[in-house]
Computed example of a mutant assay.
Amino acid sequence: MARTIVVTGSASGIGKATADVLENAGDRVIRVDLKEGDVTADLGSAEGVSAAVDQIADLSGGVIDGLVANAGVSHPTELSLKINYFGTVALIEGLRPLLAKSEAPRVSVTTSAATLQGNDPELVDLMLAGEEEKAIERGTALTAQGPQIGYANYSSSKRAISRWIRQVAPTREYAGAGIGINGVGPGQVFTGMTTDLFSTEEGRKMAADAMPTPYNGIAEAEHIAAVHEFLISEGNARMTGQVMFVDGGYDAQSRGDNIW
């Protein structure tokens, strides 16, 4: 039976690949993006998230079976906090009542292998505490110190959303309602956002030094989409609270046995 799945950031990259894979498999996909899609909304603002939730409710008839919360940016600024964490959490929470009406509700979030990199612990804690104003203030201060320091906005947003997934997964609101929620942490991926980076030898070397991918090199968006497809499927009936690093071996190389 066809399922109704919402995919955010669906106009390009991983989001488009995921939406295409799901549609080709026979699911009904509600595409959400900033400028094109079934729903157009700015998921970096409270008003945009609210408008998106209302439109998705109308289009779906009040029930959705899955959500691929993929929309995000890799900015070394506080914009990463607004979209990658606060907007993502608000959208998931806003759509939770629609998911709870499904017989097999699933959520899969695009996080990043950058969650394993250096971040700002204070900023992560502020996000997890829901202190948006203070987090934006902290993020703005990091931005002012230049892109190298400002990168912590991005890595911290991904660390925070990864931790949030694990915190909410076993709760009454999620596990208790039958809603499975997991994350996908891509490493290096060919997308529109990385075209410039991977177009030069210098850029490719910089990326390889920061995030080595010993297994099969740089991924295509379709490789990440395949993992999202499984995580939101009815077949994924027991996995929740996990962040699956689809990173060509970066996690295993960087953390080794330390996770145990």
Rank of each mutant, 00 (worst) to 15 (best):
Y151M: 15
P105Y: 03
L99M: 09
L79R: 02
T40H: 09
E132Y: 01
A129L: 10
G66V: 02
A51D: 11
V63H: 03
S102F: 04
S80N: 03
I149Q: 14
M127W: 07
S60A: 14
K35S: 15
T77V: 05
A69T: 04
D58W: 00
N84E: 01
V49K: 01
S74G: 14
G94S: 06
A114E: 10
A100C: 11
L43F: 05
E93A: 12
V124Q: 03
L126T: 10
A129W: 07
T140D: 06
Y154D: 11
P76Y: 00
R28S: 14
A152Q: 15
S156Y: 04
V63M: 06
E131L: 12
T77D: 04
S74H: 03
G118K: 14
I92R: 00
T77H: 02
Y151G: 13
G48H: 06
A144E: 14
L126E: 10
S74F: 07
Y85K: 01
S156F: 06
E23P: 12
E103T: 15
R31D: 11
P121I: 10
L99G: 09
G61V: 02
G37L: 11
I92A: 01
Y151E: 13
T143C: 04
V49F: 02
D33H: 09
D54G: 09
L126A: 12
G94M: 03
E132T: 08
T143P: 05
G26H: 13
D38Q: 14
I56Y: 00
A144T: 10
N119R: 15
L126M: 13
T40V: 15
T88E: 00
R106W: 01
T110V: 15
P76V: 01
S108R: 02
S155Y: 01
A25I: 08
T40C: 15
E137Y: 05
A114I: 07
E132G: 02
E78W: 07
G48V: 05
A90H: 05
I30C: 06
Y85S: 02
E23H: 12
T40E: 14
F86E: 00
N70D: 09
V68C: 06
L59P: 01
D33Q: 10
L95G: 05
R28F: 10
L59W: 01
E137R: 10
P105K: 05
L142C: 13
A100I: 08
V53Y: 01
Y154S: 13
I149D: 11
V53S: 04
A135W: 02
N70Q: 05
I30S: 06
V39A: 08
Q148M: 15
G130N: 13
R106I: 06
T111E: 07
G150K: 04
I64K: 00
P121A: 11
D120I: 10
A135D: 02
G62Y: 01
V53P: 03
E133F: 11
N24C: 09
G150N: 07
E131F: 12
S50M: 04
S156N: 07
P121F: 04
T111N: 09
T77W: 00
G130L: 14
L91E: 08
V53E: 01
R138T: 15
D125V: 08
D54Q: 12
D54L: 07
S74P: 02
G44P: 10
Q55P: 00
R96K: 14
T77S: 13
G118M: 12
A57D: 14
Q145I: 11
D38P: 09
D54V: 11
L81N: 03
V39C: 05
L95M: 10
Q148I: 14
S74L: 07
I92E: 00
